[in-house]
Design a protein around this nucleic acid. Structure first.
Lengths: 210, 210
DNA sequence: GCACGATACTCTATGTTGGAGTATATCTAG
DNA sequence: CTAGATATACTCCAACATAGAGTATCGTGC
């Protein structure tokens, strides 16, 4: 019997609110968690079944015409499992950033290719913020489906929005720098990097003193 | 024949510099890419073999006493593959953040549990910046193994350092907020969230106007 | 000479992706 | 009214990936 994963609890969390079909569950996970817990649809279909074998959810089969669907709901054991999870150690946030890998091996790339690699950060930033603006307006204009969730949503929003801001800021400033490289000198390029290093160390020292 | 993945190219990138043993490769990947392309050691051992079957690397077996080791080097086909990769589309950065999932379902958690979930961001921020300070000093004091890499390292450093700054800023401000919740009101908590939403929308509007 | 850390791997269960494949139900435009 | 598009509701598979355990040998410091 495999233990439950964060993906299991992400589904269980939704089931703790009300019963859902897997399709709806996949939709909610996609809409709400995609930027910090992305999982493909087929994984959700697998995992709902797993939740049932673990006894933390139960599925009820019904039909609309000849097409069946399963509505899942949480069991008392599921609620207890969710509470136990909340008490457990948290994994550190995990980042995978192919564009940065290309920058790392940028000696084998052209400046144009570096520009494109960096661009992938901006694309994500735009996506996050486009979604964010919609959510923010829904809350502010009282059109949100769960207005009570505003305080929690605010925390998540704060993280994601500023994550996006960092992605964008970095992308723009890095693209600007790389654009100068074809006509720049090694010294100039190195000096820019040293500037970055110095700023960071100053920040760090200020923090350890303060 | 499975296509090469970013992990393949991450290894190939190292091999484009000089030949390495898998142990050294795993070490370099860990030291240099762990914050934006983390892969377990056993994966590297698997993948070096795969690179050989794909013809992009070759392995030379030798012995120190009775213990063997394999030194991998890149082939001409490997260099071409690396160049092709550089031209290809980039995946968007990917984030997995269990702590945020717990915050999302925070209705089922205690404030202390939320505090702990948020803390996981700070732990990573400290890790990134502790590693960053060492690297920055190495470059600034001329003790770096590859001083020529400074311009590229500067770009990567800039992203990671500020990613860490955002993690820390968010963690501290969110923990401060959550700490008030046991004695706060729903209105106050919602107002804080609305403040976050409004700031974001203003930022967004300023950007689209400017 | 021995303990311990570094080097050099292998193995396995399970999680996960991404894409293809297969239906049926419902909505929308003509 | 009907055809085509879109939404709903799944299944299947190869390959990537993790985490942790397991197994050796080599080199260094005491």
């Amino acid at each position: 019997m495999a233990a439950l994963t964060t993906t299991s609890y992400a589904i269980l969390g939704w089931l703790s609110v009300r019963p859902w079909t897997t399709y709806e569950l996949a939709q909610q996970l996609r809409r709400n968690l995609r930027f910090f817990w992305p999982r493909v649809e087929s994984r959700i279909y697998q995992e709902t079944k797993h939740l049932v074998t673990e006894g933390v959810a139960k599925g009820e089969r019904s039909y609309v015409g000849r097409r069946g669907h399963t509505i899942y709901s949480i069991t008392p054991k599921g609620r207890r499992a969710l509470a136990v999870w909340m008490r457990q150690q948290n994994d550190r946030p995990l980042l995978e950033f192919e564009g940065l890998v290309k920058v790392f091996f940028g000696a084998s790339a052209t400046p144009e290719q570096l520009l494109a690699a960096i661009q992938s950060a901006k694309v994500l930033a735009d996506e996050i913020q486009a979604a964010g603006v919609i959510v923010a307006r829904e809350y502010l204009e009282g059109r949100s489906a769960w207005p009570d969730r505003a305080p929690l949503s605010g925390l998540i929003f704060d993280f994601l929005w500023n994550h996006a801001e960092n992605l964008r800021r970095w992308a723009e400033s890095s693209q600007q720098e790389v654009a100068t490289w074809p006509t720049s000198s090694a010294d100039k390029k190195t000096e820019r990097a040293f500037q970055v290093f110095r700023t960071a160390i100053e920040q760090d020292e200020k923090r350890s003193r303060g």
